[in-house]
Simulated assay, not measured.
Amino acid sequence: MSDVAAVAGVSHQTVSRVLNEHPSVRGETRERVLAAITSLGYRRNSAARALATSRSTTLGVVATGSALFGPTSTLIAIEGAARDQGYFVSVATLHRYDAEAMHEVLEHFMAQDVEAIVVIAPQDDVAAAVETFRAPVPVLVVAALEHVPAAAGTTPAGPTTLSLAVDQRAGARAATEHLLDLGHEDVLHVAGPQDWFDARARAAGWREALEARGVVPTRPRTCSWAADDGYAVGRDLAEAIAAGEGPTAVLAGNDQLALGMLRAFWERGLSVPDDVSVAGFDDVAGSAYFVPPLTTVRQPFEVLGQRCVAMVVAALAGEAVPTERIAPELVVRSSTGAPPVR
């Protein structure tokens, strides 16, 4: 910083103000300092900065190691939003979820002096492991939890446990209502694994939409998140649909399940949406290019990441931070239409 100050012809304090984006620096002076920084190849010394400010500006993120779209997109969004706010991210990937594993992660993060911990917790066993957390910093759980873990944090007066998620229930409800509004008298739900919070919330939203219209929900078909399971379910349904006896509309638990069903229906010679409408969930990259383009529910992961970091920053400032649910968006494409005449 002293070298930058000498080249720019300013004080050490002015360089510090420019680096910290202080509003009191004149534009011409700021540009001169930034030019000196570029010419000298100056980089902040993060370790020295942490010592000087007693802040690590580091967030610990617990991830499950899942390659599935939702958890991966959540991790990427949090890292990007944290970097935009000047935070570093330290990621710990877990492959087992118990008190011992969580204790190891906590020790790992505390050794790095993280300011807060974010847990991406899509499944029951991950949330149960969070119950064992005794962190001296705020903990934010990213999941469609039925409740915020009561045991997390240190004491009622200590660091807070926060909860944030995309509103999975509202998304499934909107997709189901869309199909009912098209004239379908019932909607079959092909659900994801029921040890996932998102899968249960989506099933609940589907059920609520049907019951609000006076429709008694049929039992959902439950499977994994994989396209091959969607294909297997689609093959089971195809004969009945071809005979005019199967469902006229299907809400898939995610876009991969929908993709598998589209393949199975195509192989049987069924037309989507003329013979059966199909909707998905997630709006994965490429879903607009399925055949036909898929009606689905888009999860705003960028907003999720931004809100995650904003909640952590607010908690660190001692502000009250309520549980938050972020609204998804229904994206209507040509895989859904009016029911066939039977």
Rank of each mutant, 00 (worst) to 15 (best):
P138H: 09
A172Y: 07
P156Q: 13
R134V: 02
A111M: 10
L164N: 13
L140G: 03
L145E: 04
V118Q: 07
R134S: 11
G171V: 04
Q112F: 09
A150V: 14
H147Q: 12
P159I: 01
Q168K: 06
V139F: 00
V130F: 08
A152H: 05
T160Y: 05
T160N: 08
V166E: 11
V130I: 07
Q168G: 09
A116E: 02
A157L: 14
V142G: 05
V114C: 04
A143V: 02
V114I: 05
A128G: 04
A121L: 10
D167K: 01
E131T: 05
V118L: 09
T132M: 06
I117E: 05
E146S: 06
M110F: 09
A116S: 00
I117Q: 08
A116R: 00
H147N: 13
A127E: 14
V141S: 07
T154D: 06
A157V: 10
D124Y: 12
A157S: 14
V141I: 03
V119L: 10
A135V: 12
S163A: 09
V141H: 04
V148F: 00
R169S: 09
A143E: 07
A116C: 00
A129G: 10
R169H: 07
Q123K: 12
A129H: 11
L145W: 06
D124Q: 14
F133Q: 13
L145N: 02
Q168W: 02
T154Y: 08
L164Q: 15
V118A: 00
P149G: 15
G158A: 09
T155M: 09
P156K: 10
D167Y: 06
G158I: 13
V141M: 03
A127I: 04
T132Y: 09
D167I: 12
L145C: 02
G158D: 13
I120D: 01
A151D: 14
P159N: 03
M110T: 08
I120C: 08
V166Q: 10
V139G: 01
P122Q: 02
